[in-house]
Design a protein around this nucleic acid. Structure first.
Lengths: 230, 230
DNA sequence: ACAAAAGTGTTCACACTACACCCATGG
DNA sequence: CCATGGGTGTAGTGTGAACACTTTTGT
């Protein structure tokens, strides 16, 4: 016996929109594209795609990420669902936003050409279509919160990074300057980084030592009842 | 000219599920119902309903809240969207969860009868249908975070409350005991409460003074560059 | 030699924690 | 008069913020 509870109910288009963050030139950037279709073709937009029948929301977002970056295993988290009736002027679409952190060292810039996409400095965010500006705002709020609570800031880097670069990223995320000594003190007190023997000599004459995030040390921290906090 | 971008895409049933919190007998409770329809009829479930064509997600959630509590202006916030393919064993449904805080003083208990609903102590949460346990867990995490950052704890009360009751609620939310003096010190340092001349003499012989949250004082606090923090 | 960025400790203020006794009242 | 819960202050500890100089090296 089948009931009719699920029958005669409205069905909706569901989209997954991605706020793709990257770190470049000491600033936080978002990957944006010129919308290829009407309405509002040519306007700035987040990367998105419709959810398919046999796809979870996360899978749809991962697909969008893979299509535009060709990277897998990208750190991703749901921001919110957006469901105002007229949010999409092309039709009734419910959109679920995800933010993602990508490593720009690995980014294939030819992809940007292909999709008419561009890394835009978060400080110079243009007007986006629909409610995408709100999505970016919400994503940034969540990112800030998460960065302060969990060691996700390292997802922006390809394994190794220098402390000055890490601090630049931190300052870009929070849009405020912080004291170098306090920043390094906090990091070293957590004992979650490995100092490497090699230096990055590109961005300074003296050169800055590379560091790596050490997952085991991080787990040790948690086992001691301590928490990550930046 | 109309494009085909929105055509031939899958459409989904979208539900709004509500985690309705209330404070009762010194414990945090959630309003649950016995699911009236198959599959899993008779099992414990959150309150929910399908989103209609001309309804935003928030409006759908508000409707669910109104139907089950007959209260308006309830504090409500989105938790997350849940979109695993098989999360609902009755069909493909994408669900957006909202948590809400209701005043149990005003709650009409006859409604509970009508909907086969019950206030369940959060410490004795039964197995719920689908991913509803996860939703409650996520809602509780978000609630704890929000309570510590914004003055929403007062939404549990009908205007006035005593400090012992407020502390009981706080301890129920965080499931840990805290020091009476420190709790009161923190509250009084924010200067956002008005002490009334009347006492609640029901729960103790001596009686505890009633207090009220004062919105203007709270705004003054913000203007001074300070923040609410519990 | 000098410019430019890397690296390094200490002090102070404030916030959080722990802790014990008196008060008011109903029964 | 006594049992029950309401109400109050202080000292110690830890965390976050402010702050200046030396080192290295490429040009």
């Amino acid at each position: 016996m089948i009931n009719h509870y699920y029958k005669n109910k409205s069905r909706f288009l569901v989209a997954a929109d991605c706020i793709i963050f990257g770190f470049k030139e000491k600033e936080l950037h978002v990957l944006l594209t010129r919308r290829p279709v009407e309405p509002l073709a040519g306007e700035w937009s987040l990367m998105g795609g419709f959810v398919a029948e046999n796809e979870s929301l996360e899978a749809a977002a991962k697909k969008v990420l893979y299509d535009y970056t060709q990277q897998e295993g990208i750190y991703m988290e749901q921001v919110n669902a957006y469901g105002e009736i007229d949010r999409d002027t092309g039709g009734r679409v419910i959109s679920v936003a995800f933010y993602a952190l990508v490593r720009l060292e690995e980014f294939d810039t030819s992809l940007a050409q292909k999709f008419d996409a561009k890394w835009i400095n978060i400080k110079e965010l243009p007007k986006l279509i629909f409610d995408h500006n709100q999505m970016v705002k919400d994503a940034l709020t969540l990112l800030r919160f998460k960065v302060s609570m969990e060691p996700i800031i390292f997802e922006f880097f390809d394994e190794k990074f220098t402390l000055p670069a890490l601090q630049d990223l931190y300052e870009a995320i929070y849009q405020r300057e912080i004291d170098k000594r306090n920043f390094r003190k906090k990091l070293s007190s957590m004992e979650i980084l490995d100092k490497l023997d090699i230096k990055d000599t590109l961005s300074s004459k003296r050169g800055a030592f590379y560091y790596q995030f050490n997952e085991e040390k991080y787990n040790d921290l948690l086992e001691r009842g301590k928490y990550f906090s930046l």
